[in-house]
Design a protein around this nucleic acid. Sequence first.
DNA 1: GTAGTCTGGTTGACGCATCAACCTTTGGGA
DNA 2: TCCCAAAGGTTGATGCGTCAACCAGACTAC
Lengths: 184, 184
Amino acid sequence: MIPVIPDRPRFPTRAVDPIPNYAGRMGESGNRLDGREYQSWRAFHRMHDQLSLALNQHLQRDAGISEPDFQVLAALAEAPGQALRSRELREELQWEKSRLAHQLRRMEQRGLVLRDDCPEDARSATVRITDTGLAGVRTAAQAHAALVRELFFDALTPAQLDAFDEAGAAVIERLRQRCPAEAP
Amino acid sequence: MIPVIPDRPRFPTRAVDPIPNYAGRMGESGNRLDGREYQSWRAFHRMHDQLSLALNQHLQRDAGISEPDFQVLAALAEAPGQALRSRELREELQWEKSRLAHQLRRMEQRGLVLRDDCPEDARSATVRITDTGLAGVRTAAQAHAALVRELFFDALTPAQLDAFDEAGAAVIERLRQRCPAEAP
DNA sequence: GTAGTCTGGTTGACGCATCAACCTTTGGGA
DNA sequence: TCCCAAAGGTTGATGCGTCAACCAGACTAC
């Protein structure tokens, strides 16, 4: 639950720039994002959100599954024996454990995967893809890959893609250093 | 609701590469993503998800608000009169109308914004930021900008940032062309 | 072998996002 | 004037993601 704004001293009521240190209209100094940074930041989010939306809609239409469904199914389909322990799946996807638990519950209800006991560790379970799940991921795979290529890779020059990769690696590394608890 | 896998012919049961056209282990041909593309694609998503998580956690801790809260509050705080009609807010944020309606309902319940009737159009409403909301966005703004800079901009070289911008613009343009209905 | 801790996993609550259905007002036209 | 389509907005259902709390089996120390 989102708490209410914490207690804090009130600002004076005279007219000042209302959010003086975010992306304000003044050009100078400090921690504020300048106009160019602000535009870049918003463009990054728009790109991600719109890509994600388009891919989800197409997956949904073509195969009746979502992107998270697809990620799980693809990981399982590629696994030896087309099954993985939850722990392994979690590492593969880099998901939080409760996220995976919820996702698997929904997918199990829809018959895309099933879970049975793990012989080596009684706490764990083996997640197995069903025929239905396999059919779904196969239906989705080609069209999904084609769309990712069309909307993302084909829009980028090789140099842009290189820079993109390096930038992504740099940001992830920075996150790992600065927020170690939050970026496992 | 997510429909079940649609009716379709069954694949032969002999052992084949389980998802033959996504990101398989074979190097060749076709619509499949190759290994490098696949890695880039996953890295992009990881970067986005982890950035988003870290920013949300810090906003939550520092000011008790979420990223969507912050976006709405920042837009309102910068608006003339610190108020906007829903329509304008929606254009500013590029959000779907029901998304905004839900978000404003939650924020109104928590006292961050309020809505009153719009004199010019009886269908519409004027969204106004409250003192509580203003306090929240002010508390959040500097720390948020600093974190965005630290985790994102400071991790990138100028050349990477340029490439990032160009890439983002290219992808958004491609989306606009190919999925016009889905990228308003 | 018993206690304490660690690890793998589940659950419930809640905010976020999308979709589809719906309501009201507006603004044209016939 | 009356009708009707389009626009602005809301609502309910449902999937997704996080957090905090919890549970049970496994490991370690003693």
